Simulated scan of single mutants.
Amino acid sequence: MSSSDIFIGETVGTAILILLGGGVCAAVTLKASKARNAGWLTIAFGWGFAVMTAAYISGPLSGAHLNPAVTLAFAIKDGNWTDVPIYLAGQLLGAMIGAVLVWAAYYGQFQAHLTDKEIVGGPGAQATSAKAVEARDKGAGPVLGVFSTAPEIRHTVQNLATEIIGTFVLILAVLTQGLNDEGNGLGVVGALITAFVVVSIGLSLGGPTGYAINPVRDLGPRIVHALLPLPNKGGSDWSYAWIPVVGPLVGSAIAAGVYNAAFA
């Protein structure tokens, strides 16, 4: 694989991943969406199919890492760190592009949702104190969940542990099933298996934090949320943002270590 193939494959693949994954979150969340309130099963399967689609598209070019946790695991497994920066750059750029495409696809729904007084409050519901305004602007806004994850209960240790555990399962599954011919990415069978693993993680472990299990899946769209001209969007919850980045990387490193010790 050339550097350009890796960068293009990861950029395009991660953009597709976030477009379809963030798209199902938008579909379930936003006012005037035909799929609104479709529920957690829809989100879990939507993200699984997003992984499968993105992996099949990007696999021939880059091996379909689509996730810094996967890239880190292969680097630890093989001891080859040469292409890691190229993978990470493509993944972050792709995640941001995908988030912008979600906004474009659901532009009218975002506008309707964020100007609805029942959702964002009318003049009488606005925060009045400086402290309340600051809390509103720094915390999670009403559509942040379309872009990134947030815990149902804010407990740093538990939230971090949940992301570590979920990513551990994902990476161990990736490393122990159908890889491509080079052994440094997903093959055809591996992409399908991984998609169902992601569904399983979402259904079983996604409840506490929304299962980022992928640093750029959370960070890239969170940056886009902070930059987009969305009315009444609220804050991007940067105080939480480190957990869905650090947790998956720790989980990946542990899984790669277990793989090398027990399976290699």
Rank of each mutant, 00 (worst) to 15 (best):
T162N: 07
G185T: 15
P151L: 13
I165V: 14
A132W: 10
A161K: 07
F168P: 03
L175S: 00
V143M: 01
A161S: 13
A191V: 03
G178P: 11
K131I: 12
L172T: 11
I165Y: 03
L179Y: 11
F147A: 03
I165M: 11
R136M: 04
N180Q: 12
G190Q: 04
K131P: 02
E152I: 02
A132K: 13
F147I: 02
L175E: 08
A150G: 09
N184E: 12
V189D: 13
A161T: 10
A150I: 08
K138F: 04
P151Q: 11
A140W: 09
E163C: 02
G145L: 03
Q177E: 09
R136C: 01
L175Y: 10
N184R: 14
N180D: 14
L179R: 15
L179G: 14
E152T: 02
V157T: 14
A130H: 06
V189H: 12
V188I: 12
P142R: 00
V143T: 05
N159I: 09
A150H: 08
S148C: 12
E163V: 01
E182R: 12
L179T: 14
V169S: 05
V143H: 00
G141Y: 03
L172D: 06
I171H: 02
G178L: 04
A173K: 09
K138P: 03
N159V: 11
Q158L: 09
L170W: 09
L170H: 05
K138A: 07
A130M: 07
F168W: 01
E182F: 10
L179E: 13
I165Q: 00
N159R: 08
T156Q: 06
E163G: 03
I171C: 02
D137K: 05
G185P: 03
D181F: 08
T162M: 06
T149S: 08
F147V: 02
V157G: 12
S148P: 06
E134K: 04
E163S: 02
H155D: 15
L170D: 05
N159Q: 08
L172F: 15
A130G: 05
G145S: 05
L172M: 15
N180S: 10
A130P: 07
V133H: 05
N184G: 13
A132R: 13
A130K: 11
V133L: 04
L172Y: 15
T156Y: 10
T149D: 01
L186M: 08
L186R: 02
V143W: 00
V169G: 05
E134S: 04
A130T: 09
G139L: 06
G141V: 06
D137V: 03
L160N: 12
F168K: 01
L186K: 02
V157P: 06
